[in-house]
Design a protein around this nucleic acid. Structure first.
Lengths: 185, 185
DNA sequence: GTCTATAATAGGATAGAC
DNA sequence: GTCTATCCTATTATAGAC
């Protein structure tokens, strides 16, 4: 037990839901500080470049989550269907059953969009390619694999939007079940 | 020519892109006023309850657009496929080829979500039911019709998110083409 | 390392002149 | 009806004490 204080990773984990609950512009320093349990000045000690840096590091951490929980598992040898279902479970957990927004959505609005666009586009590209590779290994033609991968992505992102707008995550749940049922085709 | 000044409808039309370019919290009075070409004080003359009222009226106008451009056409007698394709064209125009966000997305974030939830949920419900009704008339079972309608909605909403995050509307274009190709099934 | 205090700016909203 | 000027609060950010 070397440290009783919070790790940076833990701090970033606590910042994330603030950025996911509203847009980047909607996330205030007051909320961010409260979420971490520190004063605003203390946050600036850890993130000298302020909100933009917090956003960048939150996005980085989400990218690392995607890599370990999505991309690497998808690439492992083994039954593609099983890999796909594991991804759906990871997605369900990360979005808390459809109750949490995606940073791809909240960080692409307004001025923040310009600031983080490259990172966002890169995340989408890697997710899409990870899925497409899986689908090719499952026997789909390259063309069909690409199309299937994109559809999976759009269904997840669309379900997150609609769930939030309805204030009811059941669409998200139905969508994950449907993707599971459809499989890789 | 009774009036040379702007109609209220025109003003609301000019407010809309500000709310669609960022979240409700991200849309500032300065931007809103600039979009209309008036001072902030003049906007308050027209919208005494401020930003919340502007948001509500923008949402109302979007709801009327949906009714005239989506729901009523979907209900008209005639070839369901043709109705569906007309809807895809209207959607393409309204979202400007994938370059404009949906208010269902931007108004459901943060505090605004609580404020507008009922309206948003109602719009989604009507859109979904309009599509499901069309699918039933096209011969799908009620169960399949409901599922197809939801998938169409999620693909559109997902494509808008991904297009914006990538800074490239081509996903949206591909998605509309794919929905057209798939038809009602 | 965290706090209080404070600066500087932007945001939402109103008063009152024209 | 629109404007300038202004108010109040929130917001981002920093200085300096502990």
């Amino acid at each position: 037990m070397r440290r009783s204080k919070k790790s940076r990773e833990q701090i970033i984990r606590e910042l994330m839901p603030v950025f996911r609950g509203d847009s980047f512009s909607g996330a205030s320093l007051a909320e961010l500080a409260a979420a971490v349990g520190l004063g605003k000045a203390s946050l600036y000690q850890k993130f000298p470049d302020g909100k933009a840096q917090m956003g960048a590091e939150v996005l980085d951490q989400a990218g690392r989550w995607m890599k370990t929980e999505i991309l690497i598992p998808l690439e492992q040898p083994g039954d593609p269907i099983q890999k796909f279902n594991a991804m759906l479970s990871a997605v369900d957990a990360f979005y808390e059953g459809g109750q949490m927004s995606c940073l791809l959505n909240t960080f692409s609005l307004g001025e923040a969009g310009k600031l983080y666009r490259d990172t966002l586009a890169d995340s989408i590209r890697r997710w899409r390619e990870g899925l497409a590779g899986l689908a090719r290994r499952a026997g789909l033609t390259p063309k069909n694999a690409t199309e299937w991968a994109e559809e999976v992505l759009l269904n997840i992102q669309g379900a997150l939007v609609v769930s939030r707008a309805e204030g009811d995550p059941s669409v998200f749940q139905r969508t994950l079940k449907r993707l599971h049922r459809r499989g890789i085709a």
